[in-house]
Amino acid sequence: MRYIIYFIIGFCLWLLLTLSVNLDHLIAGVIVVLLGTIIFGGYFTNKPVKFLQLHRLFWFIIYIPFFIWYMFKANIDVAYRVLHPERPIKPGIVKIRTTLKTNIAKVFLANSITLTPGTMTCEIDDDYLYIHWIWVESTEIEEASKIIASPFEKYLRRIFE
């Protein structure tokens, strides 16, 4: 079942990329997507039905502008630190705990943390994430989790779990 869904998504992506319905392009697309499905289909989600649940899509659409806003803030922050004559940085690697359970949600949390102000994921270890922070505000696990992870967790929990 999940192989079929993977194939359909891959083929739609191929159609978007080529934007033509030539027979040549379609045959090449089927071959390439089949190859991809055979190799990577096994890593795909176990419950493809999650794609069709509308409340997940709704929260995902809410999440995109929120995320882009945070990304913009991150860039202003880095620009400030780069252009300031005294280079105001106080870096360190802290440890935080996440309450998310599924792997895909953790991956999105790690990616979101990397692209947001001053923080970057080094390693995921079960429930704990190691974060390189350019301006360390707290070294305590609980407080650092609250500052770094909690803005994203409430969205990601609704999307992926």
Partner: peptide, 25 residues
């Protein structure tokens, strides 16, 4: 700005911070 950060920041980890964020956006 990301490229300037790559030159100005002191170690690998801070340089990655600057280059990843700015160059991605």
């Amino acid at each position: 700005l990301g490229t300037i950060g790559l030159v100005r920041f002191p170690d690998v980890y801070n340089r990655l911070q600057a280059s990843t964020k700015c160059v991605t956006l």
